[in-house]
Every structure is written in C-alpha cells, then in structure tokens.
Nucleic acid binder design. Structure first.
Lengths: 243, 243
DNA sequence: CGTATGATTGATGTAGATCAAACATTGTGG
DNA sequence: CCACAATGTTTGATCTACATCAATCATACG
C-alpha cells in the first residue's frame, strides 16, 4: 500500500544514485557505470533473510525501497539489530571486501533491492575514482550510525535510547525524502525496536508510551509523526543534523 | 618503556603499510605514495585529546605506536568509548570525508601518529586504486569492530562483555604482532574499560576479578595474558578469528 | 613522605528484565 | 461475512543485574 507509493515515486536505483551524487559528483560515465551495476532486482518479503552472518558474500545489495535490518545473534539466540538500512543504503559491501559477512540482514517490510555481483562492483569501484569515493562516503556514514548506536546502548537510558533512535530515523527518513506531510511510514514492530535498542520488549513498549503520552511522538499502526524533532533530540541527547 | 620496544620493532609507518599490504596488494608506486603521505609525526601523551567531536577534520591520523580511543560524550558528561585504535589503524578518515568528526579521540598511552593532510590523502586515494581499496578495507574492519561493540553493549551480560572485549583486543594485538611471549601490554585503566563496555567502574572491576579468579585472564599492572583465548571466546560469545 | 591516580571492597538503591496474561488487530479459510 | 488463528501490543507483578554511594587500600611519583 504505502509501499507501492514509495516504489512509484522512486524509480529503480534512483535513491542510490541520488545519494551517491549528493556527495560524490559522479561523472556521466561513472553515473552510467553505477547504473549498469543495477541489473538484478530482488523483492524480499517482510521477515525474510537475504544475507547471513559468517557466510561468503557474493552479492552486494542496494536498497531501492523498503526497510532492512542488519543483525547479529548471540549463542543463546538473543538478537541485536546493529543498524537499519533505508533506500539508498548499501548492504554487504564490507563483507564483500572482507570475504564473509559480519552480520545477517533481513527485510523489515516488503523490500526491493538491487543485487550487484560483489566482484563486479569491486572492479567498478577500482576503476572509477568517483564511485570509490562514493562508496567510502557511504561506509563513513554507516560508521557514524554505528557509533551513534554504540553511544545509545552504552550510555543512554531506555527513554533516551528510544528518543535518540527516533531522531536518527526521522532525520534519515527526511534525507531520503520519505516523510510526506509530516508523516512517515514506520514498519518496525516493538520487538524489533527492542532488539535495536538493547532493551526488553516490555520496557520498550512502556518507554514508547511515555513519549506518546507527552506528545513527543505519535505512532499508531505504522504511521510515525514527530511534531518537534528538536525537543526529542534534546531529550535523547541526539547530536547531529536535525534534517 | 614497553612503548619504546614497540616503536623500535616497528619502524615508522611500517605497521600501516604492513596492514594495507596484507589485503590490498599495493604496487611499488602506491606503496611509495602511501609512505610519502607519512610526513609529520606527532607524539601525544597519555590522556591528551587529538581530535574533537563536531570539529572540522583537516588531519587524518595513522597510529604508528601506542593505543588510542575514540569516544563520544553525553550532555551530562558520561563518556562512551566507541572503539580502540591500535598501531596501523586510521583515525579521522571518515570525518575527513564527511567534513566533521563524529567522535573525539585521545591517547591511552604514549602515542605516536602520522598526521596526514586530509585533502592530500583524499587526492592520493582517488588516484591510487590500490590505496583506495586499502582504505575501504580498513573502513570495513572498523565497521566490524563497531558492530561487535554494538552486540556487546546491546545483548551481552557484563561478564560476557569483558570476555568478548578481551578476546577482540587479544586477537587484534596478535594481528599486529604486539603479543610477545604470550604477554601483551594493556594500557587501559578500569575506568576506561568501563566506559568502553558501557558498565560502571565498580562492576567492571568485579567482573574482571571474576575472570582473573578462574584463571581465564591475567592482568596486573598493564600486563595482559590470556592463556586460552578459545575458552574466553566461548564465554564471551566471541565469534571471529581467534588469531 | 605526601599526594595523585587507580584498584578494591561493602552496603544499598533502581532501572530495566522477566514472567504471565489479557487485549487488539490483522489476515484467512470455511 | 464471520470464526479463529496468528501476530503484535499493552498491563501488572516480581525479580535481578548492575548502578550508585562511600570508603579503604595500593602504587607510583615528584
């Protein structure tokens, strides 16, 4: 439903190119090269894994539409979602470089990804400096996100974690133009949110309710509204751009 | 003291080049280009900051000897150390790409770094595919480390966090050949360890003692010994190479 | 020697986990 | 179109891992 709208508004691969271009100033040729990489498009349904920790990486995925999560499991089956991928994000490039993936990845809702052959991408990156720069820039962005996640889990209270995460997601959504009329589609269940924030499901639920009660966020069904990001950012110790 | 030994055994820049070469197969020319980047060498004394969160990044640092930490602060002054940098590691490249640094960095002991002009490095990377590949590989490695840290903080118990972290450090130390006769130099205070593991100082101390008591680790003054990494890895849910 | 800095110990408090239901909402097949 | 199964959310009661507070105890160093 909402999904379809998003797809319709973002022609294949555009999100990716737009993001890369935003930083890297690709030449015509590089743009075409990048575009040509986007040959196979996979559709992955909610909950399905498309990358497994420890596995050899042969394909790198570029999210075209939908949300994905990267996660790790402990030996006793607990799950930690390390970071969320939104349209334009690249999944598995690190793993392609290092050989095996350090995480698993699954779809949080109906997901559409461009699957690129790892070797082919690697070669393209080597020969196209702009593309290499763009990939490095993307990796740097992912590191910022992971570092934020470390701060959340290590030193923020449950309430702050929720607020901080919502800020981050809200900002990222706005960056890829996925907030329409002040409303965003938010497909994560509270269970997934809990596994992202390193909290229990119950506690996540209560903290979320607390934020709703004071009107800092609205979240019903999968519609998210953050009326005033600045206030939530303040509460959650979120530093970084608010748009 | 121990520091000097390490320096003596690792001529300037070697650690960096060795690590890059380990993966990236630099050509003669690229090797020289990389070596030429290492012009200014700074010595930073224990506790001193050399990079500040939010600040514009003009220099990228390559650790030649010593340990460094990257950390973030919360508004109420709590510190979260996000990851540790060892010889061969690069600090600030992400920040150079994105403009400002997403973290602060400080020396954990007497530190020697090669300071490279960010723009110059950026240009060198663009023109040397091998170097670009090496930087990407390094960024990927940092990614893995951050993801491990997220898992630790989000889903491991205090005891597991300590064990997991010690495994990771032990493995990394061995990778850069910093374990001599089964003994490593470990310059972190328990306070810094606590801020890395997202625990209180007191609790960190107790968990560490527990590991010492059962003989899984030895740590006195700053000499660390891990007699059997595999066992510690098992306890701490550490996945990944044990050497 | 005294003064920092770091490590250790003990007592107490609490944020958040866990357990166990009940309650909504959605989709599905008869 | 309705029962009902499945998935997700909410609530309440209880428990515990870890934080916090407050000393005391090393160790090094000027």
């Amino acid at each position: 439903m909402k999904q379809n709208v998003a797809v319709a508004r973002q022609p294949r691969g555009r999100a990716f190119l737009t993001r890369l271009r935003g930083f890297a100033e690709l030449t015509e040729e590089e743009g075409r090269a990048a575009e040509n990489l986007l040959h196979r498009v996979d559709t992955i349904s909610r909950g399905a894994d498309f990358l497994t920790e420890g596995q050899t990486v042969t394909d790198v995925f570029i999210v075209l539409s939908g949300w994905a999560m990267r996660y790790c499991l402990t030996s006793d089956g607990r799950r930690q979602i390390t970071n969320i991928a939104l349209p334009g994000d690249i999944i598995g490039y690190n793993g392609a470089l290092l050989g095996t993936s350090s995480f698993s990845a699954a779809a949080l809702n109906q997901l559409s990804v461009a699957a690129v052959d790892a070797g082919q991408l690697s070669r393209a990156v080597s020969s196209q400096p702009g593309l290499s720069r763009a990939m490095a820039w993307h990796a740097a962005g992912e590191n910022v996100g992971l570092r934020n996640q470390v701060l959340r889990l290590g030193r923020l209270t449950a309430e702050q974690r929720v607020a901080h995460f919502i800020c981050e997601i809200w900002v990222r959504l706005s960056q890829v133009d996925m907030i329409e009329m002040g409303v965003a589609h938010f497909p994560m269940t509270q269970s997934e949110l809990a596994d992202t924030l390193g909290l229990s499901l119950v506690h996540t639920n209560r903290q979320l309710q607390a934020l709703k009660k004071v009107g800092l966020v609205t979240l019903q069904r999968d519609r998210l509204v953050v009326p005033d990001v600045a206030v939530v950012a303040e509460l959650g110790n979120y530093k970084g751009p608010l748009s």
